[in-house]
Amino acid sequence: MSNPNFEAPILITGATSPIAAAYATICAARGQGILLAGRNVIEVERVAQDLRVRHGAMISVVAYDAAKPGSGLTLAQQALDAGVKSAIAFHGIMEGKNAFHSMMQVNCLSVAELFEELLTLADKENRKLVLAGVSSVAGDRGRQSNYPYGATKAALNAYLSGLRNRTHLSGHRVITVKPGFVRTRMTEGKVSPTSPLLAEPAKVANDIDHAMRGTSNVLYTPWFWRGIMFVIRSIPEVIFKRLRL
């Protein structure tokens, strides 16, 4: 734990998702304090209690509903009060195009609201933050199978990239995390459970931890998605529009 950011507590949102829980396990195992935020406080408390029993970790639970505009402002204040120096937004939803507005709110606008407020408050105290937004490879190019979700993640990608650009000189770090298929509820029934592309949440969490403690800006996890998405982005639109993806 040479990086001082990882001796201070970390804010983790979307705490009941398997990737967030796996990441929280990594933090708890090394003795890092955690502020776990999520909508279903009872479930979040169960995750927290499990980590306390296993690792004797210092964990606080806060209610956070990303679907409600404004809730990120409260959360940012609570996080800064708790002394966090890093935060990862794991929360996200995947629904059909009828839920486009709520998906945009949860997947992109809420992250922007939270990160902006965190940075504003941190700048006042001259605190430097490491922020990571968990996006998706689906944001790299819209495909007919789930482009509304992809569009919200594309917006998040552009937002994070801009934020990285803006805060670079002031000493903050912003990381874009793009997981491929991960064994979670989101992929259940959509990706074959034996698919070689399907990654375990613990593997993804481990990659994220490396990125958090290293220097990367955009993380594809597992690594091979960088290649896959490069190819997918390179297909000319005249061809792409005819594909069934």
Binding site: R46, V47, Q49, D50, V53, R54
Partner: peptide, 15 residues
Amino acid sequence: SRMESFDESTGALVA
């Protein structure tokens, strides 16, 4: 597969 409580004095685990 969550652990729920552990009593450091008696060794009683609930999981």
